[in-house]
């Protein structure tokens, strides 16, 4: 395994375990945990804490019939939920977001491509494809931005990020990630607001590209 040097902040793991993280970020957390034993342990530690809260909760009497209802239903046949396994560079949760299909890349110019997995009031999450040596368009973001490397690597003002590494950028960070040489860099990126690209694609085109 490659050494992952940039991990998920603990508060995000806690919020994810509690199920209160907006969907775009939750997808990045699930993908990172799928690749990172350290953060999986952190996530499971928060589950243990949640379990301790549950176990020490006040017991509230349940209706008489509930237990027999449940016992009677144990043998009901059920359809198991589909499971999405890792496919190539894409961890299971990303494959699920892609509904098992290959990403549909849209060009952003200069060889940079994106494939939007979901976007809405909760924010957006997309795959970004950046050719070697190419810069991710200079962009600000209104809030937190999480970027997880799935293939290749990139570097910016804050450091070097390889496969499995996660960059956490808050709104104050003006950064210019540049894909390193070698394989094209493919990232999973989530923001709580539309990205504001400040070059490469004129802002007037942004609604058309959905960026």
């Amino acid at each position: 395994m490659n050494q992952i040097g940039h991990h998920m902040p603990d508060a995000l793991l806690a919020s994810y375990a509690a199920g209160n993280l907006p969907h775009p970020y939750a997808l990045v957390v699930a993908a990172h945990i799928s690749m990172c034993l350290t953060c999986r342990a952190g996530f499971e530690a928060h589950q243990a804490a949640g379990g301790a809260v549950l176990e020490t909760s006040n017991a509230v009497a349940i209706s008489g019939g509930l237990k027999s209802d449940v016992m009677a239903l144990l043998d009901e046949p059920t359809v198991p939920a589909p499971r999405f396994e890792r496919s190539g560079i894409y961890p299971g949760p990303v494959v699920e977001a892609l509904r098992g299909k290959a990403p549909r890349w849209r060009s952003l110019g200069l060889g940079v491509k994106q494939s939007i997995l979901s976007g809405g009031s909760e924010g957006s999450v997309r795959l970004l494809y950046i050719p070697p040596g190419q810069a991710v368009p200079d962009h600000g973001h209104n809030g937190l931005e999480l970027t997880l490397v799935l293939q290749g690597s990139f570097s910016d003002e804050t450091g070097h990020y390889g496969v499995g590494d996660l960059e956490v950028a808050d709104q104050d960070l003006e950064h210019t990630p540049i894909a390193d040489g070698g394989d094209p860099c493919i990232c999973l990126a989530a923001t709580d607001a539309p990205l504001r690209f400040t070059s490469l694609v004129p802002r007037i085109l942004q609604p058309i590209f959905g960026i």
């Binding site: 375990a17 939750a26 993908a31 996530f43 299971g92």
Partner: peptide, 28 residues
């Protein structure tokens, strides 16, 4: 995992399913 940790997670998933149309993405 402790049983309580495991049941906690199942319970939170169930509660989220009731609130949101998209369930929570889970790790492999």
């Amino acid at each position: 995992a402790q049983v309580s940790a495991w049941i906690y997670q199942i319970a939170r998933n169930r509660q989220i399913d009731m609130i949101r149309k998209e369930g929570r993405p889970m790790p492999e």
